[in-house]
Amino acid sequence: MKFALATPALNTYPAAMAPWEPKAGGPEILRYARKADSLSWDWLTLPEHLVMPTEMAEHMGSRWAESITAAATLMGATERIHMLTYILPLPYRHPLLLAKQIATMEFLAGGRFTLGTAVGHLEKEFEVLGVPFNKRGAMTDEYLAAIKVAWTSDKPEFEGEFVRFKDITIEPKPIQKPHPPIFIGGNSKAAMKRAAEHGDGWIPWLVTSEELPDCIAYMKSLPAYAAKADRFEILVTTTAYQVEDYSHAESGATQIAGDRDSVLREIESLRKAGATSVQVMPPRVETLEESLDWIEWYDQEIIPQFR
């Protein structure tokens, strides 16, 4: 099993944030990242929305980081741990710009980046950015293909409906070969198909350990999955969100296990269901110090049980 650690204070998502996060800033986030880097966590996860529609702020919070800037900052502040965007809506950026941003970070930091991406879901966000919401699926598929060409070809050329380029060079190339891993988020069959065809992993949302095996079985039934079966990551959050899909309105109290027995049972249940990685959020403790103590405790008491 691999372990991804949620980075606090980059968003203020009401269902799960700890009391200390709204007043936290750069110094606290950097201290947290460096602590995780000194331990054995595999990734730090970085959330993203570029704007938050006013009508969604009550349920989703108003603070959401831009994940590429966050990744670059935290990669510069750490030495070992990898960054994972969780989740970057792909249609918001031109694929050549995103490919260049990621390759530059990779080049400077010696790899250490995984692109967690999806089609996006906030229609108002698409509207203000001038991106067609009803074409987001087709754009995502095309952008994924274009990014891979930019990362891997010495003479990149691409001809699509939304992006075209030729007679260009793009360097530096990423350190990770053939390219940085790409994990696709989303629960629909279209998202799972996209993960099997274009991705190196899948990040579900609001999928339980009981539902996970059927989802994995569907992806395994797709022809594209077979070639990557031995390296495909299935990364599931351990946070039991009690929110409505899309609206994010709370339907109950979100549960974040914090004691040893509960955490061990939770991870084992997900592993048996087919997860290869988990995303972990510290419980809603009162202070940064308590959060730092908890991620060190988890590193010592939980992660070794699943390596």
Rank of each mutant, 00 (worst) to 15 (best):
F3L: 13
A6Y: 13
P8W: 00
P8A: 00
N11K: 11
A18W: 00
E21D: 01
K23G: 04
A24P: 01
G25R: 00
P27V: 00
E28I: 00
L30F: 07
R34F: 03
K35G: 05
A36F: 07
L46N: 05
P47E: 02
E55Q: 14
M56L: 15
H59G: 06
M60N: 13
R63I: 01
S67R: 07
A70K: 05
A70F: 08
A72Y: 01
G76F: 07
E79Q: 05
M83I: 06
Y86K: 12
L88D: 01
Y92P: 09
R93C: 11
Q101I: 05
Q101P: 05
Q101V: 01
A103T: 02
F107D: 08
A109Q: 04
F113A: 02
F113R: 01
T114E: 06
L115F: 09
H121P: 10
L122N: 13
F126A: 14
F126G: 12
G130H: 08
G130K: 09
F133N: 15
K135N: 14
R136S: 06
M139Q: 12
D141T: 14
D141R: 15
Y143G: 13
Y143P: 12
K148H: 13
K148D: 10
W151M: 04
W151V: 02
P156I: 02
E157W: 11
F158R: 10
F162R: 13
F165M: 05
I168C: 05
I168W: 02
I170E: 08
E171G: 14
K173H: 08
I175P: 12
K177E: 03
P180D: 03
P181M: 04
F183Y: 15
N187L: 06
A190G: 11
A191P: 12
A195W: 04
A196Q: 01
G199F: 01
D200N: 15
D200S: 10
D200E: 10
D200C: 11
G201H: 05
W202E: 05
W202T: 06
I203P: 04
L212I: 09
P213Q: 02
A217D: 09
M219V: 06
S221H: 10
S221I: 02
L222K: 01
A229G: 06
A229S: 14
L235H: 06
T238K: 08
T239N: 03
Q242S: 14
V243W: 04
E250H: 03
S251A: 11
A257N: 11
R260P: 04
S262C: 06
V263L: 15
K272V: 13
K272H: 11
K272W: 03
T276S: 11
T276K: 03
Q279D: 09
M281K: 12
R284S: 01
R284V: 05
S291G: 09
S291M: 09
D293C: 12
D293F: 13
D293W: 14
W294K: 12
Q300P: 14
Q300D: 14
R307S: 15
